[in-house]
Amino acid sequence: MPIDIDIAHVARLARLGLSDEELSGYQAQLGVILDHAARVQEFDTEGVEPTAHPLSMVNAFRPDEVRPSLDRREVLEQSPAHEDGYFRVPPHLETQ
């Protein structure tokens, strides 16, 4: 049974501006995939700890040392818009 998901909400969370048509296409595909993925729920994992990571390493740190930063010109050159050394974007919703 395909799983029915609130695709519009998920797309909003992921900041993907999709048309209604696209949304319903993805909703159908994801329903089928999730139905398959839901098999993880049938698997008996009683008493099994989750693994977030294949490594059993701990404490990977760096010393508090300053390293050279990037050249600002090179950084801003790659940006879609910049002004006075800043990245420039359209205004936030709240500031409108």
């Binding site: 998920v10 993805y26 993925a37 994992t45």
Partner: peptide, 28 residues
């Protein structure tokens, strides 16, 4: 886009344990 949507859903409130959390146990 399909995978971003799938992953966003699997991590979202109310579904984390059933999907992502359970998948991590399967990984074990």
């Amino acid at each position: 886009i399909r995978r971003i949507l799938l992953g966003t859903y699997a991590l979202s409130a109310g579904y984390y344990d059933a999907f992502y959390g359970q998948a991590q146990k399967v990984r074990t």
